[in-house]
Amino acid sequence: MGEAIEEASMLAFTLRRLVVALSVAFTVSVVAFALLHLSGDLATTIAGPEASPAQVAEVRAQYGLDRPLTAQYLDWLWSALHLDFGQSFYFRSSVVSLIAERMPVTLELGAISLFISLVIAVPLGVLAAVFRGTIIDRLALTFCVLGQAIPTFCLGLGLIIIFAVNLRWLPVSGNASWQNFVLPSIALGWYAVPAVMRLSRNGMLEVLSADYIRTARAKGLSPAKVVLKHALRNAIIPVVALAAVQFGFMLGGSIVVEAVFSMHGIGHLAWEAIARNDFPVVQAVVLILAAIYITLTFLADVVNALLDPRMRVA
């Protein structure tokens, strides 16, 4: 009976989160579609500033821009669900092919950045919790505040000046080799360090005060074994779910980092499209990155609910 109630509770929670995710995805699709029409007369933009009124009218009819907005949106949404985002105005090629070509760079950058942030933040959070109230704890929290205070693009420019221009250790731009990913990954990964570090610290503080930790200490286990084997294993669970959300944030934040380091990923593609009024590409990038983030957030909520039944009740 108890297992049936748990399964029903988990199913209801998942369905609620799914409805929220779909609602957010629908809202994002409306915003992405509105980008075309909030920027001015799209037919004039496509035809060019030198086009005659007759040519503008021909373009408007060719692209279906003379139809009601609702009909245009439904057609665009149906095509987007089939991964058909049309042709790029500037690159003169399929938007999907452009994104498929650039996406691996962004995914690799996001994965490396997430790894760097976890390697830095989790040990800092553990040390801050173990040495709570000491200089180590205060230094870790100060480092966390600095991580929130420094914008990503400022950090990226600083890394370029120090390690690429002055020291000449690493390349300034591009994505030809693994060296090109070092500086942008640090700049992008820095963004997630404060959140992960705070969650790791709070999780460790909660676990270290639990009864089974006191029992482990009473048995004479070494402090390192108590922290690493018994406490960290349970405190790290929420961090896993947060990491999925942070990965989605990094994919969106890669637009700034890729522009600073001239990496030819989907973020740089979005920057190029915005600079050249290539609206189909901008629409597709916004929708795809939002879909990835919404999916990761939904999966993180489900994982958290599986691991912590209190979330279902809340």
Rank of each mutant, 00 (worst) to 15 (best):
P68K: 11
P68C: 12
L69N: 05
L69I: 13
Y73W: 11
D75I: 05
D75F: 01
A80C: 08
L81Q: 03
L83N: 08
D84K: 08
D84S: 14
Q87V: 13
F89K: 10
R92V: 08
S93E: 15
S93L: 06
S93T: 15
V95M: 12
V95H: 10
V96I: 14
S97Q: 13
S97M: 11
L98H: 04
A100S: 13
E101T: 14
P104D: 13
V105F: 06
T106G: 11
I112S: 02
F115Y: 02
I116C: 07
I116Y: 08
S117V: 04
L118K: 04
V119F: 09
A121Y: 06
P123V: 03
P123D: 06
G125E: 13
L127W: 02
A128G: 06
A128H: 08
A128F: 06
A129Q: 07
F131C: 01
R132N: 12
D137R: 06
A140G: 07
A140E: 09
F143R: 02
F143C: 09
C144A: 15
C144F: 00
C144M: 12
V145N: 02
V145R: 01
L146Q: 02
A149T: 10
P151N: 05
P151I: 11
P151D: 10
T152L: 13
C154G: 06
G156L: 03
L159A: 05
L159V: 02
I160V: 14
I162F: 08
V172Y: 00
S173C: 04
Q179N: 13
V182E: 02
V182L: 10
L183T: 00
I186L: 15
W190E: 03
V193S: 09
P194W: 08
P194S: 10
